[in-house]
Write a protein that binds this DNA or RNA. Sequence first.
DNA 1: ACTGTATATTTGTCCGACAATACAATGTTA
DNA 2: TAACATTGTATTGTCGGACAAATATACAGT
Lengths: 247, 247
Amino acid sequence: MENTMATKAEPRRKTRSEFSHSKIARDLGTAIVTGRSEPGAILPGEVELAAQFGVSRSVVREAMRALATRGLIESKPKIGTRVLPREHWHLLDPVVLQWMFDAAPSPKFVKSLFELRMIVEPAAAELAARKKTGRHLASMGHALEEMARHTLHTSEGQMADQAFHAAILEASDNELLVNLSASIGAAVRWTTYFKFRSDKKPRDPIEEHRALFDAIAQGDGEAAREAAMSLIGIAERETEAALQDEV
Amino acid sequence: MENTMATKAEPRRKTRSEFSHSKIARDLGTAIVTGRSEPGAILPGEVELAAQFGVSRSVVREAMRALATRGLIESKPKIGTRVLPREHWHLLDPVVLQWMFDAAPSPKFVKSLFELRMIVEPAAAELAARKKTGRHLASMGHALEEMARHTLHTSEGQMADQAFHAAILEASDNELLVNLSASIGAAVRWTTYFKFRSDKKPRDPIEEHRALFDAIAQGDGEAAREAAMSLIGIAERETEAALQDEV
DNA sequence: ACTGTATATTTGTCCGACAATACAATGTTA
DNA sequence: TAACATTGTATTGTCGGACAAATATACAGT
């Protein structure tokens, strides 16, 4: 979605020039989720914001609409635009999640997120072990090979990692699980990939991935569940390390 | 949120006059989630839609922005506005979920949703049993009393039901679980409340609620998990019945 | 003290115009 | 003929100004 991924291989990947309203939504959105704009506070008026950003009021309004749709703000005539309390935020919206992780999410939030992953993803793996088809196993196997060949230090290996987990979710045959885990997994993985300082690279948990694959291939739901939990545990430790490494 | 709830008791609850862009977003959004606008199709141009709805292009654009934020559509110059394939939709967005259930969701979707609930909510109940505080138990107990007094056939009883489940989620001390389960539970419960034909009212699962409360109060995670699963099973059967009853 | 009214401020909506984009068609050249 | 460059064109993106609607605040009246 957001083209955060910088593949230096490609000569000049079409940047898909970001539109103004999108940029402004991100500016205001990150200000909110990072706490720079406190819940309950009133944002500057639309005309003032338009002046600040050097755009027309229409653009500001479209950005506002995007934020309101994500439960971050609420606008009323004569009142202005108020930052909503945190419990209204759509924290599982992929973009909101991205904004949270682009900054430094609180340890408690990270803990909550991995608590949720510990609930959902092992269950998804178990379902996948029960409902898998040959096609799913083929994509998983292929992705696993690619991961092993390129390692997670290359963008090809990272793509393969994503593909592997996406294939598991697809195999679970539950579109809601796909929706939920995909956005979470994506946000967290990109964070890990990009924020790690060069001297402490995350290791390749290739053995654990293979264990998960084998469990699913053999239809062993319980083993799949445990393998998934093991992988999430690794991811949690690495995410915490990556976030601590920031400034 | 949407004021679908018609409490005939109150004299004239402030209707909070719906804004045009919101109405148009709902019109187009329901057309998409119900399949009347097929994924891949190009919607009419903004000027044409503005004419159809009798509003200005700005209003149409704000509605579009809201839909795009929910992953339903994508707009590009010269191309137009395309309905995105289903896997892009934010199916767990409360409003999208509401739109799905305002119409007749496919049996497979309902099955997926309850599969997810069966994963998440028992886990939340288990967490609540471990992390509960006196304050949480107090609200749960109060809500339970109210439910028993008013029954689910009154709006007071329905509010109490919502409050009971909300208190459990709060007790789990995980804001992401709250976010996830709250919107799902709300959409499904409202559907059940309002779509049931008058001759087949849902029964009050007051015993099961009390069992869940007791398990949490005693800190018995396993019993809480099982009580929650039992309640979801009941809800699933009643939701299916309510949806089948539609025309 | 309370109630109703006036006002001011901010968002909501409208209109008309131009710019940017990316597909389609056409022409150009090897 | 086929690959490539150019132009055309339809649609969204952005702009600017204006008015309408809503509502908190201040004020007047009882």
